[in-house]
Design a protein around this nucleic acid. Structure first.
Lengths: 159, 159
DNA sequence: TTGGATGCAAAGCCTTTGCATACCT
DNA sequence: AGGTATGCAAAGGCTTTGCATCCAA
């Protein structure tokens, strides 16, 4: 495994220990799966399927418990794309696990991560106009991804 | 009931009829509850509780079915604040039922509607940079509402 | 030895569905 | 009559929990 991965795992271990938790082999495995699937927003069940390939003994409940644990520690973030199940992803990159921007294609279901930070501006306005102090935000945009859009450029609809 | 309300109900009736559905007394009642509670993002269960006061015979399943029906007709919009249940609100005002901006207080749970439209700008960028054509979006900001913020101005933490 | 970690299965929540009945055109 | 609307209760899907066991410090 690449050294970066080791670092991340070590870092997570630190965070867990500071909260009286242990980094067990199973948790480590789940973490690795999450890292290797960054940006794919796996559900608990999906994590379970992947993890079970290497650790068939591992139970679904452990996945749920681990995901919640990681979530509490700020290691992963849960999100909801309206498909009836929670999905998770690493909180790496953004300093505070801040800024989750997703473009959700309503046709093929693909979810694209967008890295915009224009919301800084909006946060300031909200802070000022509503007296609301923003800690985190989540933006979802629904529409059609490039591949699902009508092809052929800006053709006239008729001819 | 105010004339505006009548108009809305009549309009909804039109929409239902155009889809082969009927505006029944129960649906009308549910609609009225939704209208009278705009901005409160009621869950199905909550709608049920309110509706039952006037129509104790009405069943929860009808509420669910009606909410889905309204949702399909674009009359209401479902959203998710991460509390494990769908919440609904009227899609009035914004032309396309577009622009749902919510400020969610993580301390008291209050949900404030924000009417900003700064995202137009962001949508354009997304369109350009990702080739993603945005149809709708949803923005949630988590933080502390005015009442839940530490009082007394920028006081020193110690003394 | 003690406390957390885990598997398994049962239980919980919210939501959807099946079926028989009631209502309206 | 014919078809939709509805209540009730059962069924479903995802998640959490209880309990006995296992593991590590």
């Amino acid at each position: 495994m690449p050294p970066l991965l080791k670092n991340v795992i070590a870092d997570v271990e630190e965070r867990l220990k500071s909260g009286e938790y242990k980094m067990t082999p199973r948790r480590s495995l789940i973490l690795r799966v999450l890292i290797e699937n960054q940006g794919r927003h796996l559900s608990a069940e999906e994590v379970y399927q992947v993890v079970k390939e290497q650790e068939p003994e591992l139970g679904l409940a452990t996945v749920y418990r681990t995901l919640e644990l990681f979530s509490d520690c700020g290691i992963v973030f849960g999100m909801d794309f309206g498909d009836g199940r929670k999905r998770y992803d690493m909180g790496l990159g953004a300093a505070l696990g801040h800024h989750h921007h997703h473009l959700i294609c309503t046709r093929c279901g693909r979810i694209i991560e967008a890295g915009e930070d224009l919301l800084e501006d909006l946060e300031l306005r909200v802070q000022r106009d509503y007296g609301f102090s923003v800690v985190d935000h989540q933006l979802k945009m629904f529409g059609l991804c490039e591949g699902c859009q009508p092809k052929g450029g800006p053709a006239k609809s008729g001819s």
